[in-house]
Amino acid sequence: MSDHKTMTLTLIVWRQKNASDPGKFETYTAKNITEHHSFLEMLDCVNEDLILEGREPIVFDHDCREGICGMCSQVINGAPHGGQVRTTVCQLHMRKFKDGDTIYIEPWRARAFPIIKDLIVDRSALDTIIQAGGYTSCHTGGVADGNAILIPKPVADEAMDAAECIGCGACVAGCPNGAAMLFTGAKVSQLALLPQGKTEAAARVTAMTKAMAECGFGNCTNHYECQAACPKGINVKFIARMNREFLKAQFA
């Protein structure tokens, strides 16, 4: 590692003590950063310096650091997860930045996501949407034969594409209206596509879209910023599918 050049970056980071604190930007310097650091590792370095100086470290969400858990949630230079295609913040690497860059780091900003501290927001509104209908009701008992219900491969694939959603909330953060249409669309679609989920499809889309509005999420105006922000590349076709399911439910 010693043969690599290091970078020095200026970070302008949103600091906020709690939900009621108005919050403000503070400027930090990230030193001795190599291109191999992930974005979160870069923040770890900054936090180590802050701790040594006896200052409060920057608080941010993270967990698996391999792009599959959906915990990391930062808006970097205006783009959720930093704007690299299909990449979560933890998989964003410092090689995407240049020595001397200034980087703005902000939390997800949405009415339905109150800030807990600094870069951590409360995303439990997404859980509320899932609780409203993001499941199938089935009897427990003997394990069903895995191939008892045949599902065509293209259908299974499409359901899997929707199920790729890791629930990080980048779609909400990227949406100018703070809408959770892509999240809810993906969850409605992954179940509505499969035979096990079709039974409750009408009740599900009705309940989940209702919960979505009650949680304070905005409405869709078809900007498609959500798809651009999604680290899993969830397509807005699942919003169209949800709209279709919603329309069908009116006649159910």
Binding site: V75, G78, P176, H223
Partner: peptide, 29 residues
């Protein structure tokens, strides 16, 4: 009605505006 409901959907604007897909037309309907 939809426009009014969507006002404040984002609790406050980002310091850096970096829309990737929205257009002048879509933002000014």
């Amino acid at each position: 009605q939809l426009t009014i409901e969507n006002r404040g959907g984002r609790s406050q604007p980002y310091a850096v505006k970096a829309t990737q897909k929205a257009t002048f037309a879509s933002e000014n309907m």
